[in-house]
Each structure stands twice: as structure tokens, then as C-alpha cells.
């Protein structure tokens, strides 16, 4: 056991002479960077897509619906590979940027669905009451609907970010070295299976646990304002 840990994590492995833990930490950095920026890109895209979908103009709602259908209907790993090897092939885009764009695009579609569901969950009597007072559609949205929808949206949004973090584990498909890929490299160089894989699993678990914890704190605070 101790041997396995020393070999896979603390002994120089491979021709570059790097130790396992260094690879893992570098991989973790890539995972976090991709997750973070994809989260931001996804949120912006999600809001924009929701606005387009709710529009009464077909040339706005139609592309938004198509985008969501395509993203939801295909695996994220397929989207990632197509984006990197086909769409961005002629451009000189590095793997991490490509991954951020792919996961951002993917997440944006899901986030737009989360926002839409959150808005639709607000009782339609709220819209009628505000409109009956003479408020316009947009001021009703801003003053009445969105403040209530946000409470429906935030918990699901937190879940989406956890899913996103875990889904980045397929970055290896385009040759990027994220946490999962780092584990795989160690495995192939040392022929130790358990230590690198469980180390990866543990780190993912720890990250999602911390995130869930922060989220539940935040939700408790939101509930207090009810």
C-alpha cells in the first residue's frame, strides 16, 4: 500500500522525470480553470438563450431552441471532440480554450433550461396581478417575476455546476491533461491502478462536497428571507 502510494505519487515517473503528485495538481488546475470559465460562459449564454427563447420573434426563439435541442441531444464528449478537431481545427486554439468553449456551450443550454423552468414555476397570477396594475411586461419581469424565480433557479444552478465539474473529466479525449487524464498517465507509466484512480475520485468528491456545502449555506440564507 505505502509502496503503491510512493511509486504512483512521489517517485519520478516516465522520461520527463516528473512525480505523480505534480501531474495530479497540474491536472486539477486544468479541471478548475476549465470548470470556472465554462461556468461563466455558460451563465452568460444561458441568460441570453433564455431571453431569445422567450422572445415572440421567431428568428430569435428558433435558433435558441435549435441550440438547446442539439446540445441536449448529443453527449458532451462528442461535442468536445467535434469542436476541437473539426470546428476549431483550422484555428490555432489550445486545448484548454477549446475545452472551455465546448463546456461553456454545453452548460449554457442546460442553464437556459434551468432559468426557463425557474421563471415558469412562478405562479402566473403574479404576472396577471402586476400587469393589471399597469406595469409593463419588462418591469413586471424585473420587479416581480425574476426576484421570485431566482430562488427556484439558484439550487438547480448549483447542481449544474457540480455536473459541469465532473463532466470535464473527458478533456483527455482531445489530449488535454486534466485531473482524470493525469491519473490515467500515472496509471499507464507505473502500472499502479488503485492509487491514481482513487486519488482522482477522492479529489472530485472533495471538490463537489465543498461546493455542495457552500451551496446549502447559501440556500439557507435565501430561505431566511421568506
Amino acid at each position: 500500500m505505502i509502496d503503491a502510494i510512493t511509486t504512483s505519487l512521489f517517485t519520478p515517473i516516465g522520461e520527463d522525470g516528473l512525480i505523480g503528485i505534480y501531474l495530479i495538481l497540474n491536472g486539477l488546475k486544468v479541471t478548475l480553470i476549465v470548470t470556472f470559465f465554462a461556468m461563466i460562459m455558460g451563465s452568460i449564454l444561458g441568460v441570453a438563450t433564455t431571453l431569445m427563447k422567450m422572445s415572440s420573434k421567431w428568428y430569435l426563439s428558433w435558433p435558441a431552441n435549435l441550440y438547446v435541442s442539439v446540445i441536449r441531444g448529443t453527449p458532451v464528449v462528442v461535442q468536445l471532440v467535434i469542436l476541437y478537431f473539426i470546428v476549431l481545427a483550422s484555428l490555432d486554439v489550445d486545448k484548454i480554450t477549446a475545452a472551455i468553449i465546448a463546456f461553456g456551450l454545453n452548460s449554457g443550454a442546460y442553464i437556459s433550461e434551468i432559468i426557463r423552468a425557474g421563471i415558469q414555476a412562478v405562479d402566473k397570477g403574479q404576472m396577471e396581478a402586476a400587469r393589471s396594475l399597469g406595469l409593463s411586461h419588462w418591469s413586471t419581469m424585473k420587479e416581480v417575476i425574476l426576484p421570485q424565480a431566482i430562488k427556484n433557479i439558484l439550487p438547480s444552478l448549483g447542481n449544474e455546476f457540480i455536473v459541469l465539474l465532473k463532466e470535464t473529466a473527458v478533456i483527455g479525449f482531445i489530449g488535454g491533461v486534466d485531473l482524470m487524464r493525469a491519473g490515467e498517465i500515472i496509471r499507464s507509466r507505473t502500472f499502479e491502478d488503485s492509487v491514481p484512480l482513487f486519488t482522482c475520485a477522492l479529489i472530485y468528491l472533495l471538490l463537489t462536497y465543498i461546493f455542495t456545502f457552500m451551496l446549502s449555506k447559501f440556500e439557507t440564507r435565501l430561505k431566511q428571507s421568506d
Binding site: 405562479d123 397570477g125 403574479q126 396577471e128 396581478a129 402586476a130 400587469r131 393589471s132 396594475l133 399597469g134 406595469l135 420587479e143 416581480v144 426576484p147 421570485q148 428571507s225 421568506d226
Partner: peptide
Amino acid sequence: RQKVGMVFQNFNLFPHKTVKQNITLA
């Protein structure tokens, strides 16, 4: 609609605003 007030069966008060804010919003 500003000149036509409406009262609903299910009240439809804005739950995130106080009573006073409900009245002064519009």
C-alpha cells in the same frame, strides 16, 4: 390598466415584498 383595478380570487400578492411595498410598487 392603470385606471382599472383588479382583485383576484387568489389575491396574487407579491410574496417577496412587504404589504406596504406591494401597495407602493405600481
